[in-house]
Computed example of a mutant assay.
Amino acid sequence: MKSHQQQQHHHHHQKGATSLFPKWHVINTFSYFFLFACGVAAGVFLNSYLKNVSFDLHLTKFSISPSPSPPTTSATHNNTTAAAAVGGGCENRQEKIVVEVPVPVLPPPPPPAGRVGLSEYLKVAAEAMHDMEEEELLWRASMVAKVKEYPFPRVPKVAFLFLTKGPMLMAPMWELFFKGNQGLYSIYIHSSPSYVASPDESPLFRARRIPSQGKFNMVEAERRLLANALLDVANQRFVLLSEACIPLFNFSTVYDYLINSNQSFLGSIDDPHPMGRGRYNKRMQPELTLADWRKGSQWFEVHRRVAVQMVSDIKYYPILTKHCKPPTVLHG
């Protein structure tokens, strides 16, 4: 009896399970089909929408605007309509985004610059005038390169230093002397501080006056002329002249003789008279003794190495300035 009931219960359970599985199978199949249909509809909709959108890129404007829809077949139209219905009634919308980008105005490129070598860097200005103080000028002029050989082609020049009270009286003669020899000479003029150059002054000398402040004695004026001439590394020989001097030989003769000479030309004598030993002061000892005392000519011609020593002296010049009486003053 009990086994019969168990068999009936087991048979009833199998029947219920058999009837349940087909229902779940139908529901799952319908769900898969529905999801597949939605995916196809969404894909067709997106494909149709993207075909109607164009991207235009310009230099100053960025725009996104839908282009006119190309002709479509009825199948495509139906699919688009179906996709719109599935997507909740979405409609194709035309959008346009414009972004203004300013175009910068660039300056024209600079012309290609040539190489500035040492020779160009060391070139002096066309005008001799500057605003350096006495200490600055002497310091700059006393600089000497340890390497003797120049790293660029150098044409040695003769510097003509004119110590004058006023105008260049012999200017026409000097113009003939220098004519045709540009690049082989330099001119520097130190005149009385009270002198004002005439506008009609010769162009050869107009821009060659060096600065002069206050009243300088003759030695200071000579040192300042030498220092200004030493700023040009091409100057090899230095000739001190007055406005009354004239050349006795042509330029080529003077140039060749001085450039090829290894000597400097200075006048120095032991003068026992008041203008010689009479100007010696015992307070100059021990740096300067009477045996060392000499009277020299104010006009000279020296080599560059001697000129550097003359402007670099800080031992004897202060003693002479303080104790040598009476000083020779360059009056206006």
Rank of each mutant, 00 (worst) to 15 (best):
W293H: 02
K23T: 11
K15I: 11
A42Q: 12
F36T: 09
S198T: 12
D131V: 11
F177S: 01
P203L: 06
E301C: 15
I314V: 15
Q7K: 13
V116Y: 03
D292F: 04
P203W: 05
P326N: 00
V144E: 07
A125D: 14
G276A: 03
A82M: 09
V196C: 09
K2I: 09
C38V: 14
A37L: 13
H25I: 14
P107W: 02
G166S: 13
D256Y: 06
L50F: 15
C245Y: 00
G276D: 06
V99L: 15
I27G: 07
Y150E: 12
L169W: 06
V158Q: 01
H331N: 14
L163C: 04
K157S: 05
F300W: 14
L163H: 07
P112D: 04
Y316L: 13
G276I: 03
A234H: 13
V233D: 11
L258N: 02
M310N: 04
S202V: 03
G89H: 08
V101F: 15
P109A: 14
P193G: 02
P199V: 03
K148C: 08
A207V: 09
H12I: 08
H13T: 09
N260M: 03
R224Y: 06
Y255P: 09
L137C: 03
A37Q: 08
T164P: 01
R209D: 04
Y280D: 03
L288N: 07
A244M: 06
D271W: 00
L138N: 02
